[in-house]
Each structure stands twice: as C-alpha cells, then as structure tokens.
Nucleic acid binder design. Structure first.
Length: 369
DNA sequence: TCAAGAATAAACATAC
DNA sequence: CGTATGTTTATTCTTG
C-alpha cells in the first residue's frame, strides 16, 4: 500500500486573510509540527464574504490585482478565483463603504447611494456564490440573504420580494439541495457526553454518507455537486458578458486558469484535491444522504481531544485526531507513526467531518466543552 | 414571432 | 400568534 505522508502542496496561493473567528481559532505562533506526520489540506476556503469584498473597499475602489497573485494552478473546483473580488466581482459600486476616487468618478456618491446597480447575476448565481463562500459550503436561507445584502448593495435597498425569489429559486432549482437538520438530537442533552455521543454517532454515520446537521431554524442549503460545474459556467459567462473593460485585465487569466481546473474535473483526482472528494463523494447522494462537508470546513484549534481525560472513543476503534490551522492551511496531526495512504486520507477527512458536525451540534445546543 | 429561462408575485403550508 | 421558511402556481420579462 502506497504511503502518502508527504505534505500536500498548496494549489491555491490566492489566500487572503481569514476571518476573525478563524484567526481566533488558530494559534498565531503555532510552529510547523516537527515530530508528527503531517498532511496539509489545501483550503479552498480562503475568504469570508466580508473579506471577499474588503480589498476594493480598503483600496478606495481599485480593482487592480497584482498579476503575481494569479496562479494557473487555481482550482476551479473551489471558488478561490471568485475571491479575487477586484477582478471578478466588481459589478457594483460599494458606495456605502468605498471611498470613491472623486477625481476619476464623476458620479456623485449620493447618486450611487440612492441607486446601486442591480447585479447581473441570476439568483442561482448569487445563491451559489453565497454557499460557496461559506466555510461549510452550506447555508441557511437567512445567511444567504445576508451574504447577498452584504455583497450587493442593491439588495439593501430593494423591496423584500427578492427574498421570495431566493427561496423560490432554492426550491425550484435542481442545483441546490436542502439538508434536513437533525432536530431530534438537540433536545437530548447538551453535556459533554453529547459531544462524545455525537462524534461517535457521526463517525458511524459516515459509512452511510450521512452526517447530522447542526440544529437551527429552517434547513441548510448546499450546492448539488453535479450541478456545480454548470453553475460555475454560468458565473463565468456572466463575467464575460459584463466585463470587458481594462479594469478586469486579469480576469481572463483567472478564468483561463479556472477553465483548466474544470477541464480536469472528473477526469483525474489528485490527493491534493480534497475539495473534489467533498464535491464528489464516493457514495451516491440522495436527499436523505448528504455529502460530507470538506475538511476545509473544520473549525480548528483542536476539535478533538480537548481534554486530557481518557477519551471514551479510544476504545471505539477510531483514531483520536487533532487538527490545527496554521496560516491558510489546516493540518491533521496523526498519532505517532501512523501511516497514511490515499484511502486513509479520505477516511480521515470523513472523521474530521463527523467531529466537526458533532461540534456544531454541541455549540448550537449551548453545550459547554 | 416564439420558446426557454429567469424574475416576480402570491397563496398556502409548516415549523419554531 | 407572528415570523421565517419552504413549496407551488401563475404571470411577466428577458434573451437568443
């Protein structure tokens, strides 16, 4: 059996500063692990929505992107290329936040304030971007609303009917799948045992490709993996149709890189492309059997093994895993001399998902770790 | 002009 | 009971 204990190379250098919560969740001085076998998972999750558009805001509306930040290694299967807001999503003025270059822009700020342009994106695209920009690649309707409002000023002022359209689109479009949250478990307990039970349950569930969802109002929505390329294509076409000016100088570079990435989708699967695994789970998907969220979604400092007591899972046949995040990568620390092969990497990813799901359940249940 | 897709509006059901 | 969410139907608009 082939061993894969190498550090997987990052394939997307376009990472931006992470969100506050993510920053808080990692140790800023955490050194590279030396004595552990280490597998790094390139995180396609690079920027939260707020960060996604922060660059033009902070730079006075400049949409220039340094060519050095563009890489043809970008993976279209993630939307990191979308995060290059300056090139790919400058469809709106951001009048409420951006300091507009007055000398170059003859349009009064007040006018922009009163009439932000309607984005050319379809609701499907907006929903798609919102979901893809979420850490777990799934969002409740409320958060989809919020993402749209945060990123497209038009919808701050627009009548509420667009929310209806969002819901309509979610329901009608095959591109999106509703994930039923497991509401039965939240009422059981919020104790430490709940966490451990949830981990165990989730670990068991992984073999049926089912992971219980965190509990809240309504359902979570995710992008149906098989429709993801099509959504990307629509998004790409929208960009091409609406951006031909020089401020988008690097867009073509990005999109070509994206095209290259997509061409390989489904044809080859590299160990470094775990996002592909998450989008194309080894089992078939049905409304009742959800895919596993990608490794990248795991909130890290230490998800598992948070207390030093003997872990009841130790006898369950599962490996106790530790995760941490350093810079833009997430690391899986394996115990001792654990050997990892391709298959194990995938399984470990599922474990990460299971534990992450358990953590979400506990958090939402108000449990204390 | 026509068809298909998207947007919009509205009614209704359900869950919290 | 009010609100949010989800589904469905119908109509209008846009685009190729």
């Amino acid at each position: 059996m082939e061993k894969h204990t190498q550090t997987l190379p990052p394939h997307s250098p376009l990472h931006s500063p992470r969100s506050d919560s993510e920053a808080l969740s990692r140790s800023p001085s955490l050194p590279q692990p030396a004595a552990v076998q280490l597998t790094s998972f390139p995180s396609s999750r690079t920027t939260p929505a707020s960060d996604l558009y922060s660059a033009p805001r902070a730079s006075g509306g400049s949409h220039c992107l340094s060519p050095s930040t563009v890489s043809d290694q970008d993976d279209l299967t993630c939307l990191s290329w979308l995060h290059q807001r300056g090139n790919l999503l400058p469809l709106q003025p951001l009048p409420k936040i951006t300091t507009l270059p007055q000398t170059l822009d003859p349009i009064p700020v007040q006018q922009l304030l009163s009439s932000p342009a309607k984005p050319p994106y379809s609701f499907s695209s907006l929903i798609f971007m919102a979901i893809e920009d979420s850490p777990e690649k799934r969002l409740p309707v409320k958060d989809i609303y919020q993402w749209i409002v945060d990123n497209f000023p038009y919808y701050r002022e627009a009548p509420g009917g667009w929310r209806n359209s969002v819901r309509h689109n979610l329901s009608l479009s095959k591109s999106f799948q509703r994930i039923h949250r497991d509401k039965s478990q939240v009422r059981q307990t919020s104790t430490q045992n709940f966490l451990r039970e949830s981990i165990l349950i989730s670990c068991l569930m992984k073999y049926s490709c089912f992971v219980s969802q965190s509990v809240g109002k309504g359902s979570l929505w995710r992008v149906c993996p098989e429709y993801r390329p099509a959504l990307l294509e629509v998004l790409r076409k929208t960009h091409y149709c609406h951006h031909t000016n020089s401020s988008l100088l690097n867009k073509r570079v990005l999109l070509e890189a994206a095209d290259n990435g997509q061409n390989t989708l489904g044809e080859t699967m590299e160990i470094s492309d775990l996002d592909f695994l998450s989008s194309n789970p080894p089992c078939s998907l049905t409304p009742d059997h959800e895919e596993l969220v990608p490794m990248e979604s795991v909130e890290l400092t230490e998800v598992a093994g948070e207390d030093s007591e003997k872990d009841p899972l130790a006898d369950s046949g599962y490996i106790e895993l530790h995760y941490y995040q350093y810079q833009q990568y997430q690391y899986l620390v394996l115990p001792g001399d654990t050997e990892v092969d391709l298959e194990s990497v995938e399984i470990l990813q599922l474990d990460a998902e299971a534990q992450e799901a358990a953590g979400s359940l506990l958090d939402l249940a108000g449990g204390n770790h």
